[in-house]
Structures are given as structure tokens and as C-alpha cells.
Nucleic acid binder design. Structure first.
Lengths: 112, 112
DNA sequence: CTGTGGAACTTGCTTTTTACTAGTGGCTTG
DNA sequence: CAAGCCACTAGTAAAAAGCAAGTTCCACAG
């Protein structure tokens, strides 16, 4: 160690912010749920239908997580016909541009 | 069915392109691997160090998948000291803008 | 030439996540 | 009041991820 003191081969880490993002998005279904919600609020069954393939329990779990993370909100409208509505929070809406980028990318680069 | 023929309450599906994107990105680690590779090519061990927490077997699997999907390429430089290098393909590089969006979003909305 | 160590994986086994039913309680519809 | 939708919760089985070790090829130290 003669000349390059201090510059100890930084091991090239992935951006920690990106890593944090993929703590949520890297979980199966989260991205699609968020993506669906970008089109507007939805109820539980509506989401289940939109996110083809997901099961009730996992949807419930993912929603709880995302609410906990502050990306979506859960509103209970008690009618009498009590309904639940999930919407994006401000933080969640911030994902819109990224989602759009992702969508256009997928359209060009991922054949169906 | 009198006036609204054809407009049968479309069940609001998530954009299929987005869903396709999350077929890859929705898997644990894929996003971070791709994100690391946006900073330049890397070898296996380099990736293992960059993607903190991933195991060898999963990294190997993810890389194979991503190669198969055409997002990254695997080059074998046989020296004698034979080394392998993973780089983004053109399709993979197309993810850059989306990644950037995601990173800035995470910086603002996801506290460490 | 023996020993240490890195690169790039693969294999085998355990633990965590997901998925697949079912079931609950409130409320509407016929 | 039976049948059905909504929003979930519970229980269990299958799939994925994690962990630890082993492998081959090579380089460098002693």
C-alpha cells in the first residue's frame, strides 16, 4: 500500500436506495398491485380480479405490507354495504413516472 | 344489453406489459442485480459482493434466468485465468431510465 | 511442491414464502 | 330464507430462497 491509500477498491454496491425500493417491488405481486392502483382506487375483489393469479391470502398480506410502508391507504366506507377502498398515498403516486417508464420498456423489450 | 354493447365493465386489469416486467423484476434480487449491472459489467463474485444478502445458488439461478430473458449477456474470457463477465444487453440497458426514476423515488419516499 | 486463496459454480438440506383450499360474518337480491 | 358477493382469516401443501459445503481451474507464497 504505497500510493492508493484510502481508495480500497470499493466493492461496487448497488445503490442503497434502489435496494430499498426492491424490498417492496422485489416481492412477488407488489409491483402489479401498485401498478393496478395507479389507474385509480380499488376494492379487495377488484384487485383480486385485476391481479390474475394472486391468491386471497397473499393479496391480503401484500396490501397490509404496502399500507404499513405508507404507499397505499385503506379506507373503510361503512354504508351499510361496508366496502373497503385501497388508494395510493402521495408516496405511492410518486411511483407513477417509474411505472410508466417500466411499462414502455416492457412493451418494447418483452415480447408477450 | 341495450345501449352499452361491447363495453362490458372491463374488469380493470393491470397493464399486461407491466405485469410482464414484474415477471422478472418481481422476483427477489433480480432488480438489484440489474441495478448493479447498470453501473457496468461485473463478474460472479463481484455481483455476490454487490448484492448483499444473496446466496450463490440464487445468484446463479437469477443470472441464468436473466440471460435467458435476453436482459444480460454472459461472456467467458478464457485467459488462462478464465473469467466470466456479465453485462447488460441493449434490452437491459433500456431499463436505465426506469431504474433512475425508481432510485430518485426511493430516495424521497423510502427512509433508510 | 505443498498450502492458501480467489473465481465460478453445483449439490444437498433446512427454513421461509407462496399457493391452494375452506370457512366466517355482514349484507343484498329474488 | 337460500344464494351470492365482499373482505378477509386459517390451515396446510408446494415452491422458492437461504446455508453450508464441495468442485475445478488457476495464481502466488514459501
Amino acid at each position: 500500500m504505497t500510493a492508493n491509500d484510502g481508495v480500497i477498491h470499493e466493492p461496487r454496491a448497488c445503490d442503497s436506495a434502489l435496494a430499498r425500493a426492491f424490498n417492496f417491488l422485489g416481492k412477488r405481486w407488489s409491483g402489479v398491485i401498485l401498478g393496478t392502483l395507479t389507474q385509480g382506487p380499488a376494492g379487495f375483489s377488484e384487485l383480486r380480479r385485476a391481479v390474475t393469479g394472486i391468491s386471497d391470502s397473499v393479496l391480503s398480506e401484500r396490501l397490509t405490507e404496502l399500507v404499513g410502508a405508507g404507499l397505499i391507504e385503506r379506507f373503510v366506507h361503512d354504508g351499510p354495504p361496508i366496502t373497503v377502498e385501497y388508494t395510493l398515498t402521495v408516496a405511492g403516486k410518486g411511483l407513477l413516472p417509474a411505472m410508466r417508464e417500466l411499462t414502455t420498456w416492457a412493451e418494447c423489450n418483452l415480447p408477450a
